[in-house]
Design a protein around this nucleic acid. Sequence first.
DNA 1: GATGAATGAGGATTCATTCAT
DNA 2: GATGAATGAATCCTCATTCAT
Lengths: 211, 211, 211, 211
Amino acid sequence: MTAVDKTPKESAGRRSRLPAPLRRDQLLDAARTLVLEDGTEAVTMESVAAAGGVSKTLGYAYFDNRTELLLALFDREVGELQRRAAAEMAESPGLMDKLRAAVRVWFDVVASEGGVASVLLQSSQLRGRLGERRQAALRSIEELYGRQVAAEFGVPEERAVVVMAALMAALGGVIDRWTSTGEPRELVESVYLEMADASLRQLVRSGRPRP
Amino acid sequence: MTAVDKTPKESAGRRSRLPAPLRRDQLLDAARTLVLEDGTEAVTMESVAAAGGVSKTLGYAYFDNRTELLLALFDREVGELQRRAAAEMAESPGLMDKLRAAVRVWFDVVASEGGVASVLLQSSQLRGRLGERRQAALRSIEELYGRQVAAEFGVPEERAVVVMAALMAALGGVIDRWTSTGEPRELVESVYLEMADASLRQLVRSGRPRP
Amino acid sequence: MTAVDKTPKESAGRRSRLPAPLRRDQLLDAARTLVLEDGTEAVTMESVAAAGGVSKTLGYAYFDNRTELLLALFDREVGELQRRAAAEMAESPGLMDKLRAAVRVWFDVVASEGGVASVLLQSSQLRGRLGERRQAALRSIEELYGRQVAAEFGVPEERAVVVMAALMAALGGVIDRWTSTGEPRELVESVYLEMADASLRQLVRSGRPRP
Amino acid sequence: MTAVDKTPKESAGRRSRLPAPLRRDQLLDAARTLVLEDGTEAVTMESVAAAGGVSKTLGYAYFDNRTELLLALFDREVGELQRRAAAEMAESPGLMDKLRAAVRVWFDVVASEGGVASVLLQSSQLRGRLGERRQAALRSIEELYGRQVAAEFGVPEERAVVVMAALMAALGGVIDRWTSTGEPRELVESVYLEMADASLRQLVRSGRPRP
DNA sequence: GATGAATGAGGATTCATTCAT
DNA sequence: GATGAATGAATCCTCATTCAT
């Protein structure tokens, strides 16, 4: 009614009619940006719509509610990160090389696009279904890797998963420091890898009966 | 709790005129409980007042606004934790013993009262001034311990602080896992301590020029 | 029902191209069900479409807007009820028998399919054009029967219509009670008929000049 | 902020600070007017606030939510009507006189202030808790009077309550007709009373064994 | 005839905050 | 020091409705 410009504006066909899957992705992209800039609290149906350049309520055509939108974002981002890490790891031989590959991917992602997945996984404040999803994802990652470590080195799985929990969190911690202090990536990454390496070796040492 | 009585009450609430500092602490206590139960988002001026059994707006007599209240809580709790950890550490001889003592305190606090300080320090989602305060506190802790480690073992401080950042976060991670899975504290704590030990020893190894 | 699938579906919905009048009726059927289950407020363009298994906006191809749809439903259902009642009445001899027949139809309809017409006619809450239509329908029914009563018994029409208004509402009232308490139909129906009978006889008595 | 006039405006001290119970009543008054003018659907937190000349959200200080507001209105209005009717009835001797007194009150109230209670009690469309409350109120009125009738005339209570249900609804019906057609009150009221009288006498006749 | 994308208006709530007493 | 009344800004979310294909 208020004389909306019907001709596609700006660069790419950014406005008006988009096929559903594209619009959905676009909204998730907008949400991702918001999370990176101002945290999950900044993700409101309206802010996402505004960031996506669409009407305030269009989001509801794609997500049942705010929580579902965040869950969708979580799944997409964490899933993608795990897929990339898994792919890199598949090409690496030993377990430590696999770990190194995974860490590299993690840093790369954070360096290139901010790493929402990392932010979401480390957000211990998340409540409700999103919090549960985060816990579940963490526990599943810890157990996935923990099992491998346990199998490869013959150590008790219950210890391995705790180490993995520590290393996951530690990775988040150093990335947090890295992004906040601006120290050189090589320094942070290498210190972390050494530490992870030492932790795993220690796990092996104490996990197996000393003769 | 759900259905608050909206009908004007007869029985006048006895206004238990408290000395300022006590009332202030009482409100912070209420806020602490809320953070532990439902996260920082659950801390509203109203919920704090309700939990403290005072009128909705009394909080403003003690704190300029919600942010200031949370900052005050942060300072009180994190300060207290550091004080306790420092005290324990003072009584321990070597650096590893100090670290062990600190970790024990940390676990104790979480076990006994939930550990708001821990929660707040790990809340990477915090934004604004509270987020800055958290970063500052983390960085200062990392540097405090990092400097000691650097001094004692003759390793570069820049590496030591990164390890400390990792260990701080790792501690949060294992505590997170511990509280969410209910694994035995001894297991989690000992695995963490071994890992921290190994990490520091590795730091020393790699930090000193190999002959 | 609750969690509608928002992810684009693969299996294309088979568009069962229906002849216009059939589709129209199908939508009205859906609306009727909704009214019976959850009242007129539950009738939204979307809910009707969903209940009819068609796309959200198809309703607009058959009805100008929500109000028109409800009006169409009203006319169809109330008209149908009157037609059935009229048919039954035609086969009955005296006026009281006619009335009895009408009441039986009314109860039958409510018993068998819930009686949207009855619901709509008793919905004093209806506003706007739908409210007017309801008032008009009621007044016209009252006058139709009232005139017959007046003619047959030689009583003033102005009194007869008021009695009919009372009896119509009373019928709604006992049906309301009947459906809500589950008392036996025979009881409710017979009490109502006796009362209607007595009311009409009283009307005759007082309506004719006492000698 | 936008330069609100702080000096009390218009006639009575209608603006700003009011003692809680007064404000509460004022809001209920506003809601009553809205129900009378446009039905319960027109009662929104905002419309009530607007009608009361207060900010959009003040209502929440007095009522938990919209439903509670409507329930409070229902209780206040229906309660008041019953109290007035009961008072009038107490002063009348026989049962029919009591009924006459009650009907007079009912008509009076509708004539003088529109009769929200009447509207609410006849709104068969009401759903949820308000609907339940309405049903409960109706059933309780029916049983209260039904029991008296049963006791006084020695007829089965199960028949008496049905007659009362019919008469209650009939009262609503004639009032509905009265307000919509503007026929003289004396006509409508007297026809209704005769009909009620006849119905009760018929109840007595059929309820007692014919010798 | 039917769908799918998109909008805008309206209404429920919550909360931080101000002000007067 | 403490309360109680009141406001306004943000959100969440539902629906009627329009338009292009």
